[in-house]
């Protein structure tokens, strides 16, 4: 079976510098290229020794993509970022959403928004968890749906639920390598014919206190950040036949053959460390460049992965 050439027909970026889709991404890329920074003091991190700078995304446009607005309380931050990034791309996709695949890179399990604190506090005795208290007053204060909020796979799940995607899918977890694995999985699924199209990328948020201090304790560099980036992939022949704009192509890549971009460090001084969103952000930005690049990433203790990005000059 020969592999189809995989075109990128949609770009989505929700990052500390702002949100941009399709042609708008080039504008945001130009701002980054001009040296614009989006790191700001983030009050929850003010006590951290690095001064609490973080790359935080502003208000998200979610309501028009949520089937039920009350479900917003079920969205942990990565889920909200992912849905805000996916919404415009999926809304514009004319194909069958039942077959649209979704591969998303996600980070560590997201924290809740403080909902569990009462339970934890009420369950403490002498500095230890007291199971009797946990089963009594602690349990009474634990929101029933909170466990679902803190599952990393809820980011792709909420895209699926709210936007109707039923295609092949997976949630790949890690740090910088997770988003890259999602890009590769989508590339292969489309190239091999297992999916007629795929939404691929990553979403992560590392700007809560717990995540930020764990980053410092394991020695990760750069300010914590959050964001999401997605690419819509289709076989080039099908994309051309429906008249879709092609921004470029995802290809198999050897970093030694193409100019390599380390996803971990991409724009880190301007936007911070985007974690599982870093590689997809790098891929989206590379599609606005003028030459092929290999985006690569390696998680702690794991081999590097890479994917090739060939931009079209139209972006």
């Amino acid at each position: 079976m020969s592999a189809a050439r995989v075109a990128v027909t949609g770009l989505g970026l929700v990052c500390p510098l702002g949100a941009a889709f399709n042609e708008q991404v080039a504008v945001l890329a130009a701002r980054l290229a001009a040296g614009e920074r989006a790191l700001r003091p983030h009050p929850p991190l003010a006590q951290l020794p690095d001064g609490g700078l973080a790359g935080v995304v502003g208000a998200l446009d979610l309501d028009r993509f949520l089937l039920r607005r009350k479900d917003k309380k079920l969205l942990a931050r990565p889920s909200a970022l992912a849905l805000a990034c996916a919404g415009p791309l999926v809304s514009a996709y004319p194909g069958d959403r039942r077959e649209l695949a979704l591969y998303l890179g996600v980070g560590r399990e997201p924290p809740d928004d403080g909902e569990s604190e009462a339970t934890l506090a009420l369950s403490a005795r002498d500095g230890l968890l007291d199971e009797g208290l946990l089963a009594g007053p602690g349990r009474d204060r634990y929101p029933p749906l909170l466990p679902l909020k803190t599952l990393p796979n809820m980011a792709p799940a909420h895209i699926s639920i709210n936007l109707g995607l039923m295609g092949e899918n997976a949630a790949w977890a890690g740090v910088w390598g997770a988003g890259l694995l999602a890009l590769r999985a989508g590339l292969r699924a489309v190239a091999e014919g297992r999916a007629p199209a795929a939404l691929v990328g990553g979403a992560d948020s590392r700007v809560d206190l717990g995540s930020a201090r764990d980053r410092l304790r394991v020695g990760e560099e750069g300010a914590p950040a959050e964001g999401a980036a997605l690419l819509l992939l289709e076989p080039e022949a099908e994309a051309r036949s429906r008249g879709a704009k092609v921004y470029g192509w995802l290809v198999e890549a050897d970093p030694a053959e193409l100019g390599a971009i380390d996803a971990r460090g991409v724009n880190i001084d301007q936007m911070g460390d985007l974690g599982a969103a870093a590689a997809p952000v790098a891929a989206v930005l590379a599609l606005c460049g003028d030459r092929p690049r290999a985006v690569w990433a390696a998680d702690p203790g794991l081999p590097a992965l890479a994917v090739g990005v060939r931009p079209d000059t139209a972006c």
Partner: peptide, 13 residues
Amino acid sequence: EGPTGTNFSACAA
């Protein structure tokens, strides 16, 4: 040293 991945798709992981 080849590809590796950690799937986090809940009970389908």
